[in-house]
Design a protein around this nucleic acid. Structure first.
Lengths: 204, 204
DNA sequence: ATAGGTACTGATAATATGAACAGTGCTATT
DNA sequence: AATAGCACTGTTCATATTATCAGTACCTAT
């Protein structure tokens, strides 16, 4: 239903977004024509109809500036639990008790996280993941090679970059001081995939 | 200047907020009158003038639905603007146009950010700030030594760790490949303080 | 070759909306 | 007692804005 936009339609949509970001108001047909360089207001009308038909905006008929953005409009917020601490160095602690929850809106990250983990240790600092950071994790039991994953070995949970070979998996730290961990494929349990990071320098 | 609102004025302001949250459009005088139960559109006009005089909204004259919620009102919810890109390497780009907005809840960071900046360059990688990261910035024109700040030199904006001496300031990169920038105290303008970081590995 | 989508120009009519003015009643302050 | 701000009703007028119709031109798929 929501087919793709043409270049020109995309430009008009961007123009509407800019207007709203700029003034808080949606533009009129005349304003769109002005910004886009149309001689006729109807050119703008045509584009708006196309954008509505393709599901990107909603037009409120007979209302001034009655253009409503639809696609990225629905950010519903969700409280995500911090389910525990995860070692970025030596694996230490298991995923267990919910310490507290943090409001994470849908749409903050491209992939929707399932829960948050507080990072302990410094084995991922070269990947920009520091001690104390919160990482957003999407629950998954599979992962592709190269992704940063939350993995469980025995009863311990750790965050590392995953490298998959034929029959074995390697958990790669991002810190020269640590050694890669090689695990037989059947002993490795993927808990989830790293989909975002939140850092608060003022949280202790 | 921004004196307090009367109960009725507060109600009108809330009504405007709701309208915008609901439909994306500001209400007309007639719609406000309708929602509030006024018999006359002018009652709404009067309230709008009062709200503008007290600094809560901006009225765009002769424009339909030309009601703009001002600073304290507009972004106080959750949507924070990404106001531009900032160089973490060599300063390149100025704070300017709003690209898009991202929903950032109140309690996500200890200090409430005013806006977000997209980081360009790698001069802060040892501080865990990577190219493409969004940094949350609280607007401020003062900062303490040791804080990570967004600073403006001439017309260029950059993010660095601030070190203050007697009469001069030093902007310290977190990357061995870059040199500290020493600036006379009067040529340095602090734009804001780093209060949080958001990274989305899937955003591109 | 015909139909439909895209991408416009140009003009007119209908209506939505803002602005201005003239009032009323209340309350708090000087 | 007078003044000012608040909180409205009611009306009129100018203009901002949408809606619609009539065209032109180009391109693609049937």
């Amino acid at each position: 239903m929501s087919s793709k936009l043409t270049d020109r339609q995309q430009q008009v949509l961007d123009c509407i977004r800019e207007c709203i970001a700029d003034t808080g108001m949606a533009p009129t047909r005349a304003e769109i024509a002005d910004i886009m360089g149309f001689q006729s207001k109807n050119a703008a009308s045509d584009h708006l109809r196309a954008l509505e038909r393709k599901g990107f905006i909603k037009l409120h008929s007979d209302r001034s500036r009655g253009i409503q953005l639809l696609d990225n409009a629905y950010w519903s917020e969700e409280e995500l639990p911090i389910v525990g601490k995860v070692a970025a160095g030596v694996p230490i602690e298991a995923i267990e008790n919910v310490e507290r929850t943090v409001p994470v809106p849908q749409g903050l990250f491209k992939q929707r996280p399932t829960y948050l983990l507080k990072v302990q240790g410094d084995s991922m600092i070269e990947a920009g993941i520091f001690d104390g950071d919160l990482i957003a994790v999407r629950k998954s039991n599979v992962a592709r090679s190269g992704e940063i994953v939350v993995a469980r070995i025995d009863e311990e949970v750790t965050v590392k970059t995953l490298k998959l070979n034929k029959s074995s998996a390697t958990l790669l730290p991002a810190n020269e001081a640590y050694e890669p961990i090689k695990v037989p494929a059947d002993q490795l349990i993927i808990e989830g995939i790293f989909v975002g990071l939140i850092r608060d320098p003022n949280s202790f």
